[in-house]
């Protein structure tokens, strides 16, 4: 167990080193949400509730979808590429435990997530009147949302990586899933203004719940009355993330492919 963790951390540090050296991926995963924030924040300046501007609402959504971008999207695209390159097959031939590989991926996701969070929160505060929470229970919720959200998104990314047949086609398979979920989950629009069927569909997946959780963290408590259930539903958020974490782990372990040949 100690060895699995030690090698997992070693892999995580190596992955971070590689990530930092791939300028395009740093820009894509870290700066892209910030660019979106500037576009949407500049276009929609209205207040959607007393004391809550759309850009504040949007920052909360972007932070949540950052977890999905750097976890699910990045990993589900990266693994098929690594499969094509033979990285994973080579690793499979060493005594490195499979779990260490997954831990390494989680660490790298957490790292790119932190970069993204710092950038989003700084820009949100400087340009879009984002209020950082002052109560410790909000920060505590923020912490478990980030940690649990990262774990769930990463493991679902690993599970989903079995679907793209090649690294080249991976982003075409993965990105639409993420973009559709973002539209359905109240990242780009106010969730309660979406059609009912969209809301119900989005409620199956974690992004809607992560977004809601981030609104709890970053919006005034009075906004709870504007939510679909008229409350923050923190326990439901926790439940949804845990269920997907378990389901994702099951599928990741079952379907993970070590190489791209049959």
């Amino acid at each position: 167990m100690k060895r699995v963790l030690a090698l997992g951390i070693a892999r995580g540090l190596l992955e971070i080193k590689q990530f930092n050296r791939q300028r395009e991926s740093v820009v894509f995963t870290v700066a892209f949400p910030v660019i979106l924030l500037f576009i949407f924040g500049s276009v929609f300046k209205d207040e959607i509730a007393p004391g809550v501007s759309f850009s504040q609402y949007f920052v909360a959504g972007m932070i949540a979808s950052g977890l999905v971008n750097s976890g699910f999207q990045q990993i589900a695209i990266m693994i098929p590429v690594e499969r094509d390159l033979g990285t994973i097959k080579r690793l499979r031939g060493t005594p490195m435990p499979a779990a260490s590989y997954f831990i390494g991926k989680g660490i790298q996701v957490l790292y790119s997530m932190l970069l993204q969070l710092i950038l989003l929160m700084t820009c949100g505060k400087l340009f879009f009147k984002l209020e950082l929470p002052t109560q410790s229970d909000r920060w505590l919720t923020f912490l478990w949302l980030v940690v649990l959200g990262t774990a769930t998104a990463t493991i679902l990314g690993i599970a989903f990586s079995a679907i793209p047949k090649s690294g080249r086609g991976a982003s075409a398979v993965v990105s639409p899933v993420v973009i559709i979920l973002q539209f359905f989950s109240g990242v780009f629009f106010v969730f309660t203004q979406l059609p009912q069927w969209m809301q119900h569909f989005a409620a199956i997946f974690p992004l809607k719940w992560l977004t809601q959780g981030m609104r709890y963290v970053f919006l005034p408590d009075s906004f709870a009355s504007q939510e679909a259930a008229k409350s923050w539903e923190l326990n439901k958020i926790l439940l949804n993330l845990v269920i997907w974490l378990v389901v994702g782990t099951f599928f990741a372990a079952k379907t993970f492919k070590w190489s791209s040949d049959k």
Partner: peptide
Amino acid sequence: LQTAGDAAD
């Protein structure tokens, strides 16, 4: 293995 193109960075 026969071919591998990993860890380029």
